[in-house]
């Protein structure tokens, strides 16, 4: 059970309901549990949404690679919510189910190409020990330009933020019928 209330639109002050309205307009769905938890500090949710939306909708990095990196962050930090939520996004973006299933063996599994493996190695090293070896950087530089690498770094950093929010609030996966 989450440690903070999961607020509905009706539970927000009237002056803050536009945050949820904007969310639905931009994303086409109702706010998810993590955002409804952050809404306990509505001014902070207001500051949070632009970067969250920018990382989702305004990057050049291939969405399949972005989602693989995010699922890897969730997998390595034991964040079931993050894994479930972004596995759905990954499938929607075109990631084969086999690439999600074999994340624990990404270093040796034949289901990944060089680009996927370079992204996953970066996400794994940063999340595990917040360091990147020269080999991992070289593999990224061989496949991506500097803008894409910077975007990847921001995605991995941001989702290391997200898993800590989930961990603090003890938020579990959203069950969908």
């Amino acid at each position: 059970m989450p440690r903070v209330p999961i607020l509905s639109r009706a539970e927000l002050a009237e002056a803050d309901r536009d945050i949820y309205d904007d969310y639905e307009r931009v994303r086409g769905v109702q706010p998810s549990v993590i955002h409804r938890a952050i809404a306990n500090a509505p001014d902070i949710l207001r500051a949070y949404m632009p970067i969250s939306n920018a990382l989702r909708f305004e990057t050049r990095l291939d969405a399949r690679l972005r989602e693989l990196a995010i699922v890897m962050v969730g997998h390595l930090t034991g964040s079931a919510y993050e894994v479930e939520a972004h596995a759905r996004f990954a499938i929607k973006a075109g990631v084969p189910q086999a690439q999600l299933d074999q994340l624990p063996e990404f270093a040796s599994s034949p289901v990944y190409g060089d680009r996927e493996r370079a992204v996953l190695r970066y996400a794994a090293e940063v999340t595990r020990r917040n360091q990147v070896s020269s080999g991992v950087l070289a593999a990224l530089q061989a496949e991506f330009d500097q803008e894409e690498i910077t975007e990847l770094a921001l995605q991995v950093g941001f989702y290391n933020t997200v898993v800590r929010i989930l961990g603090a609030f003890a938020i579990q996966p959203e069950r969908r019928s």
């Binding site: 970066y122 090293e125 940063v126 999340t127 917040n130 360091q131 990147v132 770094a153 921001l154 991995v156 950093g157 941001f158 989702y159 290391n160 933020t161 997200v162 800590r164």
Partner: peptide, 9 residues
């Protein structure tokens, strides 16, 4: 924590 995971790498 996220910022550190950007800055260090």
């Amino acid at each position: 924590a996220g910022l550190a995971h950007i800055a260090v790498p």
